[in-house]
Design a protein around this nucleic acid. Sequence first.
DNA 1: AGCCAGGCTACCG
DNA 2: CGGTAGCATGGC
Length: 224
Amino acid sequence: MNKIYDIYKTLYEIYGPQGWWPILGHGYHKLDYTFPRNQNEIFEVCLGSILTQNTTFISVIKSLNNLYVKGALHVDDIEDMNVYELKDAIRPSGYFNQKTRYILEFIKFYKALNGRVPTRDALLGVIGIGEESADSILLYGYNKREFKVDAYTKRLLIELSFIDANAKYKDIKNLMETSLKECIKDENELLKTYQEFHALIVAHGKKYYSKKPYGIGCILKEVV
DNA sequence: AGCCAGGCTACCG
DNA sequence: CGGTAGCATGGC
């Protein structure tokens, strides 16, 4: 046992299972784990990972639904779609010019995979896919054990004095993965914990780590 | 009215 | 290398 795992258990007790990644085909129900995912679901996770960059998932759902009602929530349909139509569909998620470019670049990469699982480095080579998006795609799309770090994760760990402000993505990812591997030996259980933990951090982060000063009322300060 | 959102790239020193 | 402007809409 260690403090990181204690944090996970506490968040799980408070918020319960989050069931990420929500898939439109499942009506966005919670706890819609599919293992393994089919190609449409994998692609939807990829699309959502790009669309949610610096954007709330509520807005992403609107964009995905715009594509869905056009019957275009699939790789080939988006590729063939008029670019202005695509921009208009994803407008609710913001940065629609950038994200349209990112999506079209990603589709070229994705189709070249031919159904195979991309490496993390290969994903990072795609324009528009940074570390968090790559981990998001691997963790939630491909069910790979890659911890996803986001702004809330960093704020939380700074507030709880696990890291300092200049910690890099890699450092934080390594802290989380190393700590959890100490406690969880079963690979499938470890995967599910990575998936839940990030989602739980977002749930908690929205409440206590959105507005400065961060961490007011955060119960985790009494846990670690 | 202003700040924030489940980031990333390009460009600067 | 580290730091930062720009990207855009929507919710509160």
